[in-house]
Design a binder for these strands. Structure first.
Lengths: 248, 248
DNA sequence: TTCCCTTTGTTACACTCTCTCACACTCCAT
DNA sequence: ATGGAGTGTGAGAGAGTGTAACAAAGGGAA
């Protein structure tokens, strides 16, 4: 094993990989904000919470740069990341009175914040906004069901493969290279997303590398070498219907 | 092991347990239907689909009697039940263009159907309906996250205990006896909901019975003997915050 | 009714995958 | 330099699975 891919605290590298160019512009602004007053900018540093489970849901946010982990926690420390929010994504939408999940900035993150009260007012005036909110949350629901399917019925290899493919598709959708995936999140985050341990994630990465499915550099840059084999490993043999989706 | 709890096809028994008395009336009609024209009745027999994944989302339904399993399927047969819809619950709400999950009647089921087109029209007129739809789906999203947490990070015992407690709370909310839980669904359904195998579900039921947490009769009637111990088994030691919720 | 067949549930045993624990290594910040 | 955070890898343990066999109940046919 000549694996010399060791990972630095990712802030430094990611600042220019993620934050620098908004590339293909905020790709799908969901045009949710068009009916809203301009949001206020909020900057959150790495490992800092945007909001916590149980906080009153006063604001929703759109990620402008960086990335945010949305997660649920158990008192004993176990946690489940339910989504990684990238630039252009909204967070906090599903909250009624209080947030049902926590939002933790993975890297230094810039957000636009919108008042929930204003959102509801606008929804009462603009009859279409309510429907758009409804559709946005419906998409999140579908993504949650995808993740549920993946986590509960798939092996470690299938989960990681599905995850990489989901990130690849997301990159593609954003006009980036779909074969070069930047992983701004740590192994711990990936493990908490896929319901595995970091050791299993690490081992599975290594396995994929040895089998020639992927290439790993600096442990944050994944290159997909054999897309077909990766899809096979994800269990998307015939029907590519059942793919892991990332609310994005 | 003198376990002689064997389960009949459940239709006969359930017809009078579930369908007969709407008991405490459709408990939370979500008042979603008040702004809608009266829905048409549709009756679906046991093991028949209400709709399938991929079907165009033309209707949403409210369950009147019986119960419906909402599930996602993998081509190889593995499936994940995402919710059990009971009388009063809406199904099909989260679909935008086409259904993202299938709905299978577990027992003979009576539904009221509502046209999606009509729903959207009404939402454009009644500014509050859109928001109520949004909130309904948001609740489903929170329930999906609960299930995700349960399935990915909890042991078999914790999962089953959390499931029984969720059903118990649901019964309580409906004004029924919270300690006598009727299980209209099969072991297979429970397994597919909790991400386990039927053998493990069966073994865990037996374990709980031996430990005196529950009593089993006819394998469809569960009596909670030791609520505190069951909550302990579910991992709800101190904070009872993290409970499995059933969208209901 | 009785018999047969299908469906559903229970239990035992061997096996497998993942987790747990342990330690080494790299890079970065102090 | 030193410590901390993040990652990679190995050995052993354990929870859950898969296979298989059996039991019980219901439905259908005669």
């Amino acid at each position: 094993m000549l694996a010399t891919n060791h990972c630095p605290t990712e802030t430094a590298q990611l600042e220019h990989l993620v934050a620098l160019p908004p590339r293909a512009a905020p790709p799908r602004a969901d045009d949710l904000t068009r009916s809203l007053p301009e949001g206020k900018v909020r900057v959150v540093s790495a490992k800092e919470h945007v909001y916590r489970e149980g906080d009153p849901a006063t604001h929703v946010y759109r990620v402008e740069a960086g990335h945010v982990c949305i997660y649920r926690g158990l008192p004993d420390g176990r946690r489940q990341i339910v989504n990684f929010a990238y630039p252009g994504d909204f967070i906090g939408l599903g909250a009624i009175r209080e947030h049902s999940a926590s939002a933790l900035a993975g890297t230094k993150t810039r957000l636009k914040s919108f008042l929930v009260a204003g959102l509801r007012d606008s929804a009462r005036r603009d009859t279409n906004l309510g429907l758009r909110l409804y559709e946005a949350v419906s998409e999140e629901l579908a993504a949650a069901h995808d993740l549920l399917m993946t986590v509960s019925h798939r092996s470690a290899g299938e989960r990681l493969a599905a995850f990489l493919l989901a990130l690849s598709r997301r990159s593609g959708r954003r006009g980036e290279n779909a074969c070069e995936i930047v992983l701004p999140m740590t192994r711990t985050d990936i493990a908490d997303f896929l319901g595995l341990t970091i050791e299993t994630v690490s081992r599975t990465f290594t396995k994929f590398r040895i089998e020639g499915l992927i290439d790993l550099e600096q442990c944050i840059l994944v290159t997909i070498c054999d897309l077909a084999a990766l899809e096979m490993a994800a269990g998307n043999g015939a029907s590519s219907e059942q793919q892991l989706k990332l609310a994005s």
